[in-house]
Computed example of a mutant assay.
Amino acid sequence: MDLTLLRTFVTVHRAGSLTRAAALLGLSQPAVTSQIQALERQLGRPLFLRTARGVTATTVGDELAHKVAPHLDALTEITEAGLDADSVTRTVHLAGPPEFTAERALPALTPLIAQGLSIRAAFGPAEELLSGLAAGHHDLTVTTVRPRGGLLTSTPLCDEEHVLVAAARWVARLGGPAVLQASGVRALDPVPLVEVHESLPLITRYWSAVFDAKPASSAAVIAADLRAVLGCVAAGAGLAVLPRYLCAEALDSGEIVALLDPPVPPLRTYFLAARTGTLGLPHIARTHEWLLRAAARW
Rank of each mutant, 00 (worst) to 15 (best):
T8C: 12
F9T: 13
F9P: 06
R14K: 09
A15N: 07
S17V: 08
T19A: 15
R20K: 12
A21G: 13
L25R: 06
G26D: 11
Q29K: 12
Q35Y: 02
Q37G: 07
A38S: 14
L39D: 05
G44A: 03
R45A: 13
R45H: 07
T51K: 04
A52Q: 10
R53M: 02
G54D: 02
V68C: 04
A69H: 04
L75M: 15
I78F: 11
G82Y: 05
L83I: 11
A85H: 12
V88S: 13
V92K: 00
A95L: 03
A105R: 01
I113L: 15
P125E: 06
A126C: 06
D139F: 04
R148V: 09
R148D: 10
G150W: 02
T155Y: 03
A167V: 08
G184K: 10
A187S: 13
V194T: 04
V194H: 01
S199I: 06
L200M: 10
L202N: 09
V221T: 12
A223V: 13
A224S: 10
G231E: 13
C232H: 15
V233H: 09
A237P: 03
E249A: 14
R268L: 11
T269R: 15
F271G: 01
L272S: 08
A273I: 04
T276S: 15
T276D: 09
L281G: 02
E289V: 10
A295C: 05
